[in-house]
Design a protein around this nucleic acid. Structure first.
Length: 519
DNA sequence: TTCCGACAGTGGGGTCGCAAT
DNA sequence: ATTGCGACCCCACTATCGGAA
């Protein structure tokens, strides 16, 4: 059994990239899926989604310098490519970078030019063919003659589109519909769309609505099976070992098995949430967890219940799941929430939670079942928006569809004492194509200096910037950086004399609290 | 015919673990 | 001991296609 040529996938990817029609992309994907051998289907699904099966390979750009020239003729199979990545992933750690480079050189040396391009795309997560997991699910549905919704649901419950594809091929619709939520098998989380303000959110969810306080922490999915608890992140990574205090809290619940969805945060003595950075530090490390737990204890705030003591709740309406959650958990282990019946009421709740230090609200349709993805916007998040006028001191050339345009702007405030410009971060968000073109012309006309990839300008134009807040930074001279900055508009009526000061930006969030445990 | 939901793309800052220096 | 790389946590926004209205 020779196996599917990798070249065939490379050619499919090239063709998918070449058309903008989604229907045409879907047809190309379906054709390739239909040609895959049974034991290679999951790999084909993975590669056509633009990803590798191995979550971490340890291979980055440093390991891909000095690659051999492309092979003249294709010989690689899909399975051989997977084996090569499995080998380097296997000795990421014990092996040396040199060993990984060597293995990659061997793989690339056997790949044609077209294949090398796909390999690079898979490694760097930039295949850019205009099709990712969602479109591949469409392709799976077409290839095996099943409804897309069934593929989506099975992929959600299995946490895997390749696994859903295998079921679709082997057992059709019946096999897909037989998939059930299993304790210990993380499911893809339901996501929220976003809205500019509370009333806009309410227009999408309808009235009445459930308004949950939005906590700025780490999303965690909890699975308990008797005495065993597992915790998973949004991308379904297992972080159980990093949060023993959360495990203990779940074990203390009067239940045999459950699956619930929530946010992990830490609280200050006054009950207000800790900054995101502090929480991220705790959840990102598995070294000396006990010390971290003592210094910064974290807590789970649940907001949804997917299963309780053998009973599947995914298809129950939110209000029923929420009621069961309230019965099961102490009030201080559930996200603060209110039921609201009007836009005025919601606006008041929004002001209230923001004043209490929460990130905002997630407004929810009480009738909606639990379903992965953003479909139908049953959940809508709203956050307060802060704005500043800042100086654009430089801009970086864009990539991909922004090739040839100055895209990523360097933003600076004015120091209130010295008058010097202090860089606070960058942004490329909020720009229309028209604005990209316009700003490229404007900035080039002000060019004073150029370094690799960056054009420096003077005098700096002024932009109105929105952001979610500020955070500590070791990267920027002011010691702070903007969080989620985006361009609202250029202010041609303003000059650098009108730019906001560092003190003004800092006033948004004084960051006066020290690291927990230090005082 | 127009509208709008879903999707992909373009990247941002911070933090950690680990290997190389 | 420090630095650089890779991975992954949080995330906003625009353009586009194609089905819905």
């Amino acid at each position: 059994m020779p196996g599917m040529p990798f070249e065939e996938l490379a050619r499919t990817s090239e063709q998918v990239a070449a058309t903008r029609s989604r229907l045409a992309k879907r047809a190309l994907l379906a054709a390739a899926l239909g040609r895959a051998a049974p034991d290679e289907l999951e790999l084909v699904v993975t590669y056509l989604s633009g990803t590798l099966r191995q979550r971490r390979t340890g291979v980055g750009w440093a390991a891909l310098t000095d690659l051999p020239a492309p092979a003249g003729a294709p010989t690689l199979t899909v399975t051989e490519v997977d084996r090569a990545f499995e080998a380097v992933a296997g000795h990421a750690g014990s092996g040396s970078a040199a060993r990984r480079s060597q293995a990659m050189a061997e793989l690339f040396g056997r790949a044609t030019d077209l294949e090398q391009r796909l390999l690079r795309g898979l490694i760097f997560d930039e295949v850019r063919q205009g099709a990712l997991d969602a479109l591949v699910q469409d392709g799976v549905a077409e290839a095996f003659g099943v409804p897309v919704a069934a593929v989506q649901r099975a992929a959600m419950l299995l946490g895997s589109t390749p696994a859903a594809a295998r079921l679709a091929r082997e057992g059709g619709l019946a096999a897909l519909e037989a998939v059930r939520l299993r304790v210990g098998q993380p499911v893809r989380p339901m996501l929220a769309a976003s809205a500019a303000d509370p009333s806009a959110a309410l227009l999408r969810t309808g009235v009445p609505a459930v308004a949950d306080a939005k906590l700025d922490g780490i999303r965690v999915q909890v699975h308990r099976d008797g005495g065993t608890v597992r915790l998973y992140t949004r991308t379904l990574d297992d972080i159980t070992d990093r949060l023993p205090e959360v495990v203990d809290a779940v074990l203390a619940l009067p239940t045999r098995d459950l699956v619930l969805d929530g946010e992990v945060v830490g609280l200050r003595p006054d009950g207000r949430p800790l900054p995101f950075q502090v929480i991220a530090s705790r959840t990102a490390t598995s070294v000396d967890v006990a010390a971290g737990r003592d210094r910064t204890p974290l807590r789970l705030f649940a907001f949804d219940l997917l299963r309780l003591d053998g009973r599947d709740l995914l298809d129950e309406p939110l209000e029923a799941r929420v009621a069961l959650l309230a019965d099961l958990l102490p009030a201080d282990e559930v996200v603060p929430r209110r039921s609201v019946g009007s836009a005025d009421e919601l606006a008041a709740v929004f002001a209230d939670v923001v004043a209490q230090g929460y990130e905002g609200l997630v407004v929810k349709n009480p009738q909606a079942p639990y379903a992965a993805g953003r479909r139908d916007a049953a959940w809508v998040k709203v956050k307060p928006r802060h704005t500043f006028d800042l100086a654009v001191t430089a801009a970086e050339w864009g990539h991909g569809r922004r090739e040839g345009w100055l895209s990523n702007l360097h933003l600076a405030a004015v120091h209130q004492d010295t008058g010097a410009l202090v860089m606070l971060g960058k942004t490329f968000k909020g720009l229309t194509d028209q604005l990209l073109q316009w700003q490229t012309e404007q900035l080039l006309a002000r060019e004073v200096r150029r370094t690799r990839g960056t054009v420096h300008v003077d005098p700096p134009p002024v932009v109105e910037i929105a952001c979610d807040g500020v955070q500590r930074s070791t990267r920027y001279p002011g010691g702070i950086a903007l969080r989620f900055a985006r361009v609202l508009r250029y202010r041609d009526d303003k000059t650098v004399a009108d730019v906001d000061t560092l003190a003004t930006v800092l006033a948004l969030n004084p960051l006066e609290e020290d690291a927990p445990g230090s005082g």
